[in-house]
Design a protein around this nucleic acid. Structure first.
Length: 867
RNA sequence: GCGAAAGUGGUGGAACUGGUAGACACGUCGGACUUAGGAUCCGAUGCCGCAAGGCCUGGGGGUUCGAGUCCCCCCUUUCGCACCA
């Protein structure tokens, strides 16, 4: 009777492994279901209970799908390449190629201990040549399709990581990993032309079952805006300045032009006596970090170039300025300024005394502008276009510009190409050879993989070159084209390259002839359910979608979107000791980012006096010293109890505050279910189905009603990831079951019918199996079943047994609930009225009043309006 | 500033298409069994009130027989974007 969870859990984990219970076999007749969690980077700090906030519910979901008859693919692998692993290896003085597998093994063990049902025969590791060979192959595919290119461009450079970063890896102007302020640095780098897919990445979001917030983030990042390009002729010279504007209808109000400080025309346009000032300004702007430049609060600055351009609609000469609020990376790097109707332009014009002209009006009459408004309305002061609405004008002017050959309607995106080069060691080498005679030559497929050399020293160089550049045996090679001496590309690919296609590899992980066979891909893909952290909302998900579309265009996969359903788990927060910052620590922070709390370092724990310690909830992480490990919890309460707690405590998407009191409650529930089931096992009759029919006593009817209502509820709620309410329903069921058949000295009452007890026991086990798999499997076998519970069908819902016989109908008088009457299900209005009027409480509320109206809602409500 | 989501007991959280607010748990209080219990079982538990009854879903309006749910305004929190032309 004693619930020895440690023994039971170890036993089933062993048997599942030995019997390969969760092996996914390709091509089976059962319909497939591919459920995937974002594969983790196995860190040295190990898994903590926070990681399980994703893995455990997703595992319960997989087990449920298996019981629903699906052939479930639930794989796990390691995102092993990249800077987190490399930095950790450097810090610990380890070789990453030895370190990563050790850490992965530790993760594997912890995941097994929590009873997660992975098919470990499909495990992948992105840092093994058998894997990254295909990452390189994908690079060559992109190159062949003109979607990979090398360009010298100012890139985001993280001085701490000593490498370039993709735009998606820059957060608030800082490196997303180390929070260092990112600099601009011109360097030759490899890019993927993701911008060529901007339209499709945007449009296909409609096909996805993702949260609206998630889609919105992708839309924002892609940043589509419709507008027009307009050429402004340079006054007294030749050539023109091309600007992008979303408001071509305000052309008559354009009173000056501003170029980005990096604009290529700036130097040529600037008149000699303004050159010194303009150059100084441009130099200063370039030296500034993105953060400072993007601070919207900052006052506008700019410098006049001395040059003028001609406004094409009215022939007026307007001055050309340069200012750092115009960014070279967006649009054309030049804007026409309409201070009358753009806040920024207005502020700039006010500061430098530039003219403000109103060209949009609410009602068609002009007035004195005190600010930039309105944004939309009717055109004024706009020549023959005056009187048009904003929308009409936009259309008309685009046609006119095109006719004149000085512009056209166009669409602009905020999305930038994907910088893939990293000047780091621990990544897939870019399969390119630089030949003095032939230029950039792709490594032939037959020569893949380009192996990452094993070296002693792989620290970043800081010169801007990859550590690989110092390894002559790697660098020096023969040109695949002409055979002459050549140098290998020494940059490696950023970690996102590996994670942009790994979900395909799980379909066919050992394939040596292709990244995966088309047959395996057609069977398993796309991913039916994907779960992971919201921090990948723009980067990983955008990249993976992009690569999938490229592979689709190449005819290598049969689908355009890799992840049909996506859900983001919340994080687990732990109470974390911190302190107020000291004055010098405050100094470095910008005005927009006030630091008012600093996590205590490990060595400060004992030194800071308790009254100065400020406790706050923070995400669990080793560095904050607030982690709780699954091992501790499993040892004390068991994996099943830990799992139930992780799912019961809050909705899947919510952040939760970890508390050990909560897990005790879950443990009580699991142990209670165990004790009741142990008492039910001796009463179990395999032939209960044939004996359950027929008229039943009221108590039996009631408990069976609850049972079947629960069956329906739990299934529906697992499918929508509402694990917390599904568990609450099972708890209610257990409460109902123990009320019907309470435990008395470890046995169930003799008066209870064995067929009913059998139905209750068997169904309860099946309902619990996704959540508490060890308990589920153990009791399932105790009931005499030979095969795993995950091949047993999910319990059938019996609508007749679940139907209520009577219902409470609320009686309202003037909107206030005065009484309730118990009537048979679907009782007619007349009878409910009679019952209601017969009740003393209702009669009292109606006394002396005149009934004006009655509203009857079947099985719910009788609402009486009186005067 | 823009966009998204959210605000419900002492706590985590329930509530389908508007129809018994607070399910399920945690905690607390009381009781039983115990040498003991941080085990187990039973009961109570939104607030005010002895009670009858009244009041409760961030605040204020509105629609409705009826609003946590729908509409408008405001406040707060979280997340994302942020001089994007």
């Amino acid at each position: 009777m004693n619930y020895d969870f440690n023994e039971i859990e170890a036993k089933w984990q062993r048997i599942w492994r030995e019997k390969r219970t969760f092996r996914a076999v390709s091509g089976e007749k059962r319909p497939k279901y591919y459920c995937l969690e974002m594969f983790p980077y196995p860190s040295g700090s190990g898994l903590h209970v926070g990681h399980l906030k994703n893995y455990v519910p997703t595992d319960a979901f997989c087990r449920y799908q298996s019981m629903k008859g699906f052939n479930v693919l639930h794989p796990m692998g390691w995102d092993a390449f990249g800077q987190p692993a490399e930095n950790e290896a450097i810090r610990r003085g380890r070789n990453p190629r030895e370190m990563v597998p050790e850490y992965a093994a530790a993760y594997r063990e912890t995941l097994a201990k929590t009873g997660c049902s992975y098919d470990w025969e499909r495990e992948i590791n992105s840092s093994l040549p058998g894997y990254y060979r295909w990452t390189q192959w994908m690079f060559l595919l992109l190159l062949r399709k003109g979607l990979a290119y090398r360009a010298t461009a100012p890139i985001n450079w993280c001085p701490a990581c000593k490498t370039g970063l993709a735009n998606e890896e820059v957060k608030d102007g800082r490196c997303w990993r180390c929070d260092t302020v990112v600099e601009k640095k011109p360097m030759p780098q490899w890019f993927f032309r993701i911008t060529a897919y901007a339209d499709r990445l945007l449009a296909d979001l409609e096909k996805l079952e993702w949260s609206e917030g998630m889609k919105e983030m992708q839309r924002d990042w892609i940043g589509r805006s419709e507008g027009a390009e307009v050429d402004f002729a340079v006054a007294g010279g030749n050539g023109a300045i091309r600007v992008f504007t979303t408001r071509p209808d305000t052309l008559f109000g354009a009173t000056f032009i501003v170029l980005a400080p990096e604009h290529p025309l700036l130097a040529a346009l600037t008149v000699p006596d303004r050159r010194a000032e303009v150059e100084a300004y441009a130099r200063r702007a370039q030296g500034e970090s993105e953060i400072d430049r993007l601070n919207a609060e900052r006052a506008k600055t700019g410098v006049f170039t001395g040059a003028y351009a001609v406004n094409p609609v009215n022939g007026e000469k307007i001055p050309v300025w340069t200012a750092d609020y115009v960014l070279m990376g967006y649009g054309t790097g030049a804007i026409m300024c309409v201070p009358g109707h753009d806040e920024r332009d207005f502020a700039f014009a006010r500061k430098y005394g530039l003219p403000v002209v109103q060209v949009v009006s609410r009602d068609g009459s002009a007035c004195d502008l005190q600010a930039a408004e309105p944004a939309e309305g009717v055109a004024v002061n706009s020549g023959r276009w005056s009187g048009l609405t904003t929308a009409e004008f936009k259309k008309a002017i685009a046609a006119w510009l095109e006719e004149q050959g000085i512009g056209r309607a166009t669409v602009n995106y905020r999305l930038r190409d994907w910088l893939i080069s990293r000047q780091r060691y621990w990544g897939a080498p870019i399969p390119i050879v630089h030949c003095p005679a032939c230029g950039e030559v792709p490594v032939p497929e037959s020569q893949l993989p380009v192996l990452l050399p094993d070296v002693d020293n792989y620290q970043p160089t800081g010169t801007g070159e990859s550590p690989l550049a110092a390894i002559s045996s790697f660098v020096n090679t023969a040109c695949p084209k002409c055979g002459g001496p050549a140098r290998r590309e020494t940059d490696t690919m950023g970690g996102y390259a590996c994670s942009s296609w790994y979900f395909l590899r799980f379909a066919d992980p050992d394939n040596a002839a292709a990244f995966a066979s088309r047959r395996a891909l057609d069977y398993w893909l796309p991913v039916d359910q994907y779960t992971g952290g919201i921090e990948h909302a723009r980067s990983h998900l955008l990249y993976a979608r992009f690569w999938t579309k490229v592979l689709f265009d190449e005819g290598l996969v049969g689908f355009e979107e890799p992840f049909l359903n996506l859900r983001n788990q919340g994080s687990l927060l732990a109470l974390t000791p911190g302190r107020r910052p000291r004055p010098q620590e405050q100094a470095g922070a910008g005005e927009d980012k006030i630091v008012d709390w600093i996590v205590l370092r490990h060595d400060e724990r004992d030194r800071v006096p308790p009254e100065q310690v400020v406790w706050r909830w923070a995400r669990m992480s080793k560095s904050k010293g607030n982690v709780v490990t699954p091992d501790e919890m499993i040892g004390r309460y068991g994996a099943d109890s830990l799992r139930v707690y992780e799912m019961f405590v809050a909705p899947f998407e919510d952040n939760v505050q970890w508390s050990e009191e909560g897990i005790q409650g879950s443990h009580r529930f699991v142990a209670r279910a165990w004790r009741w089931l142990q008492a039910a096992v001796p009463r179990f009759r395999r032939d209960w189905r044939g004996r359950i029919a027929g008229e039943r006593a009221p108590a039996e009817k009631e408990v069976r009603r609850k049972l079947h209502q629960t069956v329906q509820k739990v299934g529906a709620q697992i499918e929508t990831f509402q694990f917390n309410t599904a568990l609450a329903a099972i708890m209610e069921l257990l409460n109902a079951i123990t009320a019907y058949a309470p435990l008395e000295r470890e046995a169930l009452p003799a008066a209870c019918d064995d067929a009913v007890l059998s139905e209750l026991a068997e169904t309860l086990v099946l309902l619990l199996a996704p959540f508490a798999p060890h308990l589920g499997e153990e009791v399932w076998r105790q009931l005499g079943n030979e095969d795993t519970v995950y091949r047993a069908p999910w319990p059938a819902f019996d609508a007749a047994a679940a139907a209520a016989e009577s219902v409470n109908v609320m009686v309202q008088v003037n909107g206030k609930i005065r009484d309730k009457v118990v009537v048979p299900l679907d009782c007619a209005e007349e009878e409910v009225k009679a019952a209601a009027l017969a009740s003393p409480k209702t009669a009292q509320a109606l006394a002396g009043k005149q009934v004006v109206k009655m509203i009857f809602v079947r099985n719910k409500m009788l609402s009486i309006v009186v005067r």
